[in-house]
């Protein structure tokens, strides 16, 4: 089984983690000002790259903390993990 490195707990089995979708999707500054289409784009539309993708993950069976990871969507390999609030690291996929 693939191991995912929790920024706090270290390498743990993949089944301990929960996927949380694309990372770095900023909440709109003024949600009430958005049109329905703009709101729908914020809520439902996500990138779907082939290659490195920044995602949110939660160590749900361990420390239950959220963190971000850059994963290669072609190979499922984790290229980097980093804590929330930190900038996305530059990684070569």
């Amino acid at each position: 089984m693939q191991l995912i490195r929790c920024p706090w707990c270290g390498p743990r089995e993949e089944v301990e983690f929960h996927y949380g979708g694309q990372a770095h999707v900023a909440y709109p500054d003024d949600p009430a000002a958005l049109t329905d289409e703009q709101w729908a784009r914020y809520v439902f539309f996500r990138d779907n790259p082939k290659g490195a993708f920044a995602e949110r993950w939660s160590h749900s069976a361990g420390c239950r903390r959220w963190f971000n990871a850059v994963r290669d969507t072609r190979t499922y390999r984790f290229l980097a993990v980093y804590k929330p609030g930190e900038a996305r690291p530059e990684v070569a996929s």
Binding site: C9, R12, V15, E16, A61, G62, C63, R64
Partner: peptide, 10 residues
């Protein structure tokens, strides 16, 4: 210490 799964149990 560790928070993990043992069998199927957290």
């Amino acid at each position: 210490s560790a928070q993990t799964t043992l069998g199927l149990v957290g």
